[in-house]
Nucleic acid binder design. Structure first.
Lengths: 248, 248
DNA sequence: TTATTTTTTGACGGTTGGTCAAAAAGTAGG
DNA sequence: CCTACTTTTTGACCAACCGTCAAAAAATAA
């Protein structure tokens, strides 16, 4: 047998394995979205992909590892949108608005994000994952943070924003991040929303993000600039293909 | 047997049951904090309280019901602090700061709050609880929201804050709530904090809350007023007994 | 002491996550 | 085509879990 043929055989097998891994993740994501964390079982996954349980465990060392892989997969989508957002041609605070739009598109397009991501935040699940997945998780988190912090530093360098020490760019990022993350969770809780009487979570979130940046005196302030128009431009220039996801 | 004696007997029994319920909740809370959601099992609770599992199930119809009861118990503590906070004698925004201080005391004194509360937010757990517990949950949530919204409306009435329609007081509350809740969760995730380089979550949260309220132009703005001094006064006048919890 | 009601029990059924010896499939050489 | 070897796949198996419920134990009443 020729070397090239051997390679072809090997890579076909590898391709099979890779395809199966994707299949497992797809099925797992669907089950997680449909039946929640408790409804997601390794047995059911095995059944649905028509392989035995042992084979599933050859791909992921435990359930938490699988969930982490799921979260990484999703987060890569988020990063893709974020990194597109920061290419927007405009003032730093407009780019910040673009990141906000990216997050909104992301949250609307991938409602399962909440399901995968929040489980990972909440319980000590991530720490059970394989080392490689833990590192991958850290890496994608880092790229996310970098996009946000980079934009904030851009604002400082442009002279649009001052942060008196000991405050730092990361502190503003922490605020935006917590606020956004928290809103997505609280916004999915009917009890709270009933109590508050909020109808459109996303619109509220957008306003509170602007208020927050105004609070840090990041210019131009929201009353000095038409950020709704900026948003339209963002959707047109950067996220034209995703526009359908965001308009209700 | 006299009626009064019968009553005494009944009430002793009832007292026993009530005490046992408290014992179950105490053990459950400890287990949840020590071993996480996955480490909390009904068998282990039964073992620790030295009753059989059936008896535990006589108090709580299922695990989720128990978790909900736990969350309610904790939330009552939160409300107690919140309702004390709003008695602070000062301007509305100072009272808002008092609520922030109450939340900080709460988060520091009851780290298990995150464990109980977040599990309830995340999964569809609350809906499995008994009707009475669901109602109780709604009620305590309502009181929490009322304290915050009431203070915001106080600010509006005092002329310190304007909210142009269609914005409402509840929208500001949603922001503060999401921001605070999100920060507590993200702040407990080492990965994120490493990436961001935040050391003191609580201090950062305090600053971001002030920035947020500044963003809504709630007067006096943080640069017009010494809210650190206000905080000292709050800790002295309202939370003297809890002061130890908040000073590191 | 006996009859009746209430409370407590733990064995049991069904379902998880995870393991591992054995079976099946694939590969190589003659 | 057959045989020896390697890799992959399998599903019976284990321990742990939630929740049930007939039967045992305790409390109460007569």
């Amino acid at each position: 047998m020729l070397y090239s043929e051997q390679m072809a055989t090997l890579s076909r097998k590898q391709r099979e394995i890779r395809d199966r891994e994707k299949l497992i993740l797809d099925v797992a994501r669907r089950l997680l979205l449909e039946k929640g964390y408790l409804g997601l079982s390794m047995d059911r996954i095995a059944e649905e992909i028509e392989y035995s349980k042992g084979t599933v465990y050859q791909h992921f060392r435990c359930k938490e590892d699988l969930l982490t892989a799921l979260a990484i997969q999703t987060k890569l989508k988020r990063i893709e949108l974020f990194e597109r957002a920061v290419t927007f041609d405009g003032r730093p605070r407009e780019r910040m608005t673009a990141i906000g739009a990216a997050d909104e598109i992301f949250a609307r397009r991938f409602p399962d994000y909440i399901a995968t991501e929040e489980v990972l935040y909440v319980q000590s699940i991530a720490c059970k994952a394989s080392e490689s997945n833990q590192e991958a998780m850290q890496e994608v988190d880092g790229r996310c943070v970098a996009a946000v912090c980079g934009t904030i530093r851009g604002g400082i360098e442009a002279g649009d924003l001052e942060i008196p020490p000991p405050r730092e760019a990361s502190e503003i990022a922490f605020g935006i991040w917590g606020m956004t993350f928290g809103s997505h969770i609280v916004g999915k809780t009917p009890t709270c929303m009933d109590q508050l009487g909020i109808k459109d979570t996303f619109t509220s979130l957008r306003r509170m993000q602007q208020a927050y940046l105004d609070g840090w005196n990041w210019r131009p302030l929201s009353h000095e600039w038409d950020y709704d128009a900026t948003r339209d431009r963002i959707l047109e220039e950067v996220f034209a293909d995703e526009r359908a996801a965001i308009t209700i």
